[in-house]
């Protein structure tokens, strides 16, 4: 474990807590893409199947359980509890356009052709594009609530910090995993446009609006 990975995990945890707080406090999931949350639940479910087979540390297990539980709780809040506030008309990204190519790629490019490893690879590839429905929804509505932009910033920073962690591990531990690194870079690049708007607008107290 290193400070970059730890701060990445904390940022990830913070993002999830901000999202849950936003939905629970405002009793509304306006502006939140349910499709991205479904994709995240799929990412954690397929990646953390080793929860029962390999024990790394109490921290690792606790975080995995939290990520899985919170992703399903968010889906429950969006599609059941506060479904009247779910903005279905603006959450129209076709998830199959993400899941199918990622599934094929996981079968073609992986480290080991075993079920657990292919599911892990699928999860890594899917996570890199899982935010697209949410970013698409923000661009379609042309704006995002400030709390939602904080959620996206924390979520984007988590994998950006993981990239620093991979550089650190390469130089100090000699380990690297190209699948995780390339997917992580793609994932972070997808946020760049949003990061620019967040820094130039939200941090100056303005509303996050996109040029419609």
């Amino acid at each position: 474990m290193n400070v970059f990975r730890l701060s990445g995990d904390v940022s990830h945890l913070l993002a999830i807590l901000i999202l849950l707080m936003k939905i629970w406090k405002t009793r509304s999931c306006a502006g939140i893409s349910g499709k991205s949350q479904i994709l995240f639940a799929l990412v954690y479910t397929t990646r953390y199947l080793d929860l029962f087979t390999s024990f790394i540390s109490p921290y690792n297990t606790a975080m995995k359980v939290f990520f899985i539980a919170s992703s399903y709780a968010t889906i429950y809040l969006i599609y059941l509890k506060f479904k009247a506030t779910y903005d279905r008309n603006h959450d129209t990204f076709r998830m199959e356009f993400l899941v199918l190519p990622v599934l094929v790629l996981a079968f073609v490019v992986n480290h080991d052709f075993t079920p657990l490893e292919i599911l892990w690879t699928f999860s890594i590839y899917l996570e890199s594009v899982a935010i697209l429905p949410q970013l698409f929804m923000v661009s379609k509505t042309g704006q995002a609530e400030t709390i939602t932009s904080h959620y996206l910033f924390a979520l984007g920073m988590y994998r950006a910090l993981y990239i620093v962690n991979w550089v650190y591990r390469y130089y100090f531990e000699g380990f690297y995993d190209l699948i995780a690194i390339i997917a992580g870079v793609v994932q972070t690049v997808l946020y760049c446009d949003f990061f620019y708007l967040y820094v130039t607008k939200v941090l100056k107290g303005k509303q996050l609006t996109l040029p419609a």
């Binding site: 790394i56 892990w120 591990r169 690297y176």
Partner: peptide
């Protein structure tokens, strides 16, 4: 490439 030990990352 040297693989990360059994995916010890989240």
């Amino acid at each position: 490439n040297k693989r990360m030990q059994k995916h010890d990352e989240l």
